[in-house]
């Protein structure tokens, strides 16, 4: 990454723009330095965050014993899991109709409707669903969160599955039927395994989007259900603290553990095209 300094042969390469490499390196520093600083300071034993005193894991222990945090984690995991399962099932069913159904009318309209949450500013959605819940008198915080999250997760689950189905030739399903597989068996044995990477990607995306959501959760929450980002936000508003650094670091570590294998799988699947 340091070869932006070397001139030499590149000076004559018309495709090489001097300075772009420097901007690239500075950009990655900008992108990662804040996170790295935060991680570093999570190991600072000093209660005053910005003054380094010595290495310590004590903030991690106190974070893990924090009941508020643990209950927020439980809420977030519950909401994300249920919303992901629901959104993915709804998305699979819609994607199958839109790319395999015969004589589907208004396919364009249907896709627009499914992708609505991507087009609206989230704050507008959050406000709208808040008013709906209050009008209907929905009190249960967990239920409110699950319903709202399922709704905005649907397009994130839908798009990868739809893309996978469109990239896949209908030949495979026809070949299965030609070889005496009834439609349901052809779906189970051929279509489903072949679109699995898409389903996996969609579910993964939904899960992360749900876990990470702040705007909607912050407005809808209450009724005894606070999600992790909302909880962290409330801590941030109280000010910088070493425990907060530790919590943030844990969240980053878990995100990395979840995302990296998915990314590796996606990379491998890209080569094994259909």
């Amino acid at each position: 990454m340091l070869n932006f300094l070397s001139g030499g042969a590149k000076r004559h390469d018309a495709k090489h723009y001097p300075g772009f490499g420097l901007i690239g390196v500075l950009f990655f520093i900008f992108l990662y330095l804040p996170i790295l600083v935060m991680i570093a300071y999570s190991f600072n034993s000093n209660k005053i965050v910005s003054v380094w005193q010595g290495f310590s894991l004590k903030w991690y222990f106190s974070a893990l014993q924090n009941d508020g945090l643990m209950s927020a984690v439980r809420v977030s995991l519950t909401v994300a899991t249920v919303a992901t399962v629901l959104a993915t099932l709804i998305a699979i069913s819609a994607a199958l109709v839109l790319s395999r159904g015969k004589d589907v009318k208004g396919a364009k309209l249907s896709e627009t409707v499914i992708n609505l949450p991507l087009m609206l500013p989230e704050i507008v959605f959050a406000v709208a669903i808040l008013i709906l819940f209050s009008q209907l008198g929905v009190q249960n915080g967990l239920l409110k969160l699950i319903l709202a999250h399922t709704c905005f997760c649907i397009p994130f689950a839908f798009l990868p599955i739809r893309a996978r189905l469109q990239g896949m030739h209908t030949n495979f399903e026809q070949a299965a039927q030609d070889l005496y597989a009834p439609p349901w068996v052809a779906f189970k044995r051929i279509t489903l395994p072949l679109i699995m990477p898409g389903i996996f990607a969609g579910a993964m995306l939904s899960f992360v989007i749900s876990m990470d959501d702040f705007i909607t959760s912050n407005i809808v929450s209450g009724g005894g259900a606070t999600t992790l980002p909302v909880y962290i936000f409330s801590l941030v508003k109280q000010g910088v603290s070493p425990e907060l650094n530790a919590i943030s670091t844990l969240i980053i570590a878990i995100s990395l553990l979840l995302v990296t294998p998915c990314w590796l799988i996606a990379e491998r699947n890209r080569d094994a095209s259909l």
Binding site: I35, P229, I232, I251, I252
Partner: peptide, 10 residues
């Protein structure tokens, strides 16, 4: 993929 709140907190 890292929580938005955490990134802004940084």
């Amino acid at each position: 993929w890292v929580s938005m709140v955490v990134r802004v907190y940084a």
